[in-house]
Simulated assay, not measured.
Amino acid sequence: MKRLDPRGVPDTPTYPEVGATAGEPPVGYRVVEVSRRLPAGADFSAAVEDLMRWRVHERAGFRVAASTESAVAGSVVVLRLGLVLRIPCRVIYVVDEPDRRGFAYGTLPGNPVSGEEVFLLHRGADGRVTFRITAFSRPASVLSRASGAVGRGFQDFMTRRYLKGV
């Protein structure tokens, strides 16, 4: 992970429903909800460390530049894929409960989509760990609107890579 100076990244989210991943997704967006149960014996603390320190995003294939080493409310992160795709986001909230940890980030200007995504790890009563991702988004650029099903397929592909990266 590379350190990012957040002064050059716009502050204003590109959608009005900031924090909506904590409840019901808003109307008018594409909603994705996926989860993966980690293998028996998976270390909850290690998985949390990987998620909160951006390693899951790196394992998914992104180059990560973030304003903080760990995801905290207000952190700015710019994910890059290849030479062209730049995905700026701001951490909206952090979940920090004994058996539930994670964060949500929302899109900032320059992101090809507009919306929010939450990444949560949950440790069940049986000790098993589940990783859940919930997102709502809609195209925000001409290119993402024109990509249609291909763009949605790419989003789904990257979401599956997050699931594998934890």
Rank of each mutant, 00 (worst) to 15 (best):
154 F>V: 08
103 F>E: 06
117 E>I: 09
127 G>Y: 07
102 G>L: 03
36 R>A: 05
88 P>R: 00
132 R>P: 01
144 S>C: 08
101 R>A: 12
78 V>H: 01
119 F>R: 02
42 A>D: 09
24 E>K: 08
102 G>D: 03
128 R>E: 15
155 Q>N: 07
15 Y>G: 00
140 A>R: 11
13 P>A: 05
43 D>V: 04
81 L>A: 09
141 S>W: 09
1 M>F: 09
6 P>G: 14
36 R>F: 00
132 R>E: 15
23 G>C: 08
74 G>K: 10
30 R>N: 12
80 R>W: 14
87 I>H: 08
139 P>G: 00
156 D>F: 03
27 V>C: 15
166 V>K: 01
2 K>W: 12
94 V>P: 07
12 T>M: 04
15 Y>E: 10
145 R>E: 08
93 Y>G: 06
93 Y>A: 05
34 V>M: 04
144 S>A: 10
156 D>V: 11
136 F>S: 11
13 P>R: 00
67 S>R: 08
106 G>E: 02
50 D>V: 07
147 S>E: 02
118 V>R: 13
65 A>H: 12
100 R>G: 06
135 A>F: 08
61 G>Y: 12
13 P>E: 02
15 Y>F: 15
79 L>A: 15
72 V>S: 06
133 I>W: 03
126 D>T: 12
39 P>N: 11
113 V>E: 07
5 D>M: 08
40 A>M: 03
82 G>T: 13
154 F>M: 05
64 V>L: 02
64 V>A: 06
90 R>L: 00
2 K>Q: 14
62 F>Q: 00
16 P>D: 00
27 V>N: 13
9 V>G: 09
42 A>W: 04
94 V>I: 08
117 E>N: 04
34 V>N: 02
144 S>M: 07
9 V>W: 09
134 T>L: 14
83 L>P: 13
81 L>P: 03
97 E>Y: 05
126 D>H: 10
63 R>H: 12
126 D>Q: 14
137 S>L: 08
92 I>R: 09
